[in-house]
Structures are given as structure tokens and as C-alpha cells.
Amino acid sequence: MHADAILELRNLKAGYATNAGFVRAVDDVSLTLHRGEFLGIAGESGCGKSTLAYSIMRLLRDNARIESGSIIFDGTDITSLDEKAMNEYRWTRMAMVFQSAMNALNPVLSVEEQLVDAVLAHKQVTRADAKKTAMEMLELVDINAERIASYPHQLSGGMRQRVMIAMALLLKPDLLIMDEPTTALDVVVQRSILQKIEELRHIFGFSVIFITHDLSLLVEISDSLAIMYAGKICEYGPSREVYASPDHPYTKGLMNAFPTLTGPISRMGGIEGQAPSLLSPPPGCRFAPRCNVAIDACTKEVPLLQVTSPGRLCACRLCGGNHE
């Protein structure tokens, strides 16, 4: 384990049972997150990025489970912790912001009750102190502290998401996981929330895992970038480098899939076909059926995530790097 690593995933496999069978949504994922790092995980719907987030928080649904592998948080493998021990970590050391704040906030409790309860559940402080902490945190996310008495429905979508962020940061966690936190919001509101997170990160120094399908956003805001496809990480590296020179054909396709606001307008390519079902993933490289440079060998052998250049990994037998 690296000295400054806050989170390390080793060969994590997780999935959920459905009527049709077991879906392994996270298949053999290894990742390292450093202290203070902003990691973006990009992938399309159904690629397993949300299952990955919920696995790290150990908040999987009843029908889902972690099959194997380890999640090492600050030196402790949390996959083996029991529920009580896990509660010591959850919300205090690692917190999560969900996609839909409306579903995550209790509609019949005021913001005050929800924030204060969250503090009291994990800290031995008086109610008055807890409220003070909550109000300070609200001010930090640009919500007037007087609004603490409001109920969720009295707040706009952007404000609710800010309350969620305040709630996640109340106990000063080391890791903040955000699962598509701005997808339901408008661009301007999204931008101001992203700015707020940057600002708070400099104040508190937490690490962030930011999960979204919006690659153009991630490239801009994250330090490092992991691209997920069909349950596996296919490329990892510093955001700038991955954007400037993607290795994996899938990443290349994605980078050519969103129009830009500046520069010449050229015809973009996108990727033909659709992501495979995780119930019966294709043999070999899972991207091979959609890949325009695939060779026969691609459909036979599962490519491993390998170092291509310092700090960069790619799971493609055709991309550069050490093929021994």
C-alpha cells in the first residue's frame, strides 16, 4: 500500500442477483486513490460504476454482494468488517452524495433535524453544538444558515444537493464519493456546485471519487480518470493525459463522442453498437464486438490492465506499453 493512499481496491468483484441470473457488475477492479486526489470514474449506464461506489460504502442492496477482493481504506480491509465496525467508517471517514437528493433526504424531517441527527449519531456532542456545526456547514455550501429550519420540498434542486453535500461533509470525512451528483441539475447550477466542491476540498483536504457518464465534465475537474466498460476498468491515468492521448479504443471513441464549444466543427464518430449485457459478457475483451481495430485474438483472451507509461494503465492488447 502506498504511503499516501487513502483507498485501495484489489481485484474487487461485486454484483447483484436478478431473475435472469447473477450480474457481476464490478469485475476484477483494482484502483488506488491518494489522499486529496480527485478521481473521476466515467462509464455509461450499466457499466457497474454505481455498484462500485456502493460496494466501497458497503451500502449494497439486499440482492447485491461483494464476491471477492479487498477494499483497503486507510490500511484496513473493510470488506471483512461487521456492520457495527463498518459504521465507524461510514459517514465519519467516508461519505457519499447520491444522484437524487430528493430520494436521499427524508421529506417529513426538516434540514435541521436531518443534519443534527447525522452529527449526534456519530459524535458525542450536545444538541446545540451539533446544530452549530450544521449551520456552519450550510454556510460553507452557500446556504443561508437560517434555512436550516426548511423542509426538503421548500428547497430547489440545487439547494437540496448542497444540503446533501453539507450532510456528507459534516463529520469531516477523508473520502467523499459522489454518484452522478449533478446529473439532474442544470449546467449553471452544476457548475456552481462543482466549484463549491473544489473550494471545500481545499479547505478540508478530502479525496473525491466522482462518478458520472459525462466524460467532458470529468476531464475538466478530476486529477485522474478511470474509464469503466462493462464492469471492468479499461483505462486509467491522469485526466489531462488520458484526454490528450487516449490509449484504449473505447476511450478514444468516447473522447470523440461529445461536441465542443470551441475549435473547428468536425464530424464526430461515436461508437457503433451498444454495451453488452453483464449477464453474459462476450468472451475475451468486452469491447471487442464494438471495437473497430479488434483482431481475432481480442475475442479470445481477456486483456489485463497493464502499465503503458508511468502512471497510466490500459487494458487492451493493441495499446502500447510492456507486452512481454
Binding site: 430547489s156 434542486g157 440545487g158 439547494m159 442544470d186 449546467v187 449553471v188 447550477v189 452544476q190 457548475r191 456552481s192 466549484q195 473544489e198 459525462d214 466524460l215 467532458s216 465534465l217 476531464v219 475538466e220 475537474i221 489531462r240 484526454y243 465542443t260 464549444l261 470551441t262 475549435g263
Partner: peptide, 25 residues
């Protein structure tokens, strides 16, 4: 102008300067 400044712009290479966004629709 605000809308333009808010849009993701990966090609610019650096994190953009803060925008004066306040309030909502």
C-alpha cells in the same frame, strides 16, 4: 455568457476560473 462559462470545456486544459453564478431559475 454564464451558460457558456458553465458548460464543460475539457479542451481548455485547465480548471476554469470561477463563474459568478448565483441563484436558480
Amino acid at each position: 455568457q454564464l451558460l457558456k462559462a458553465s458548460a464543460p470545456a475539457p479542451q481548455e486544459g485547465v480548471r476554469k476560473a470561477a463563474i459568478p453564478a448565483k441563484g436558480e431559475i
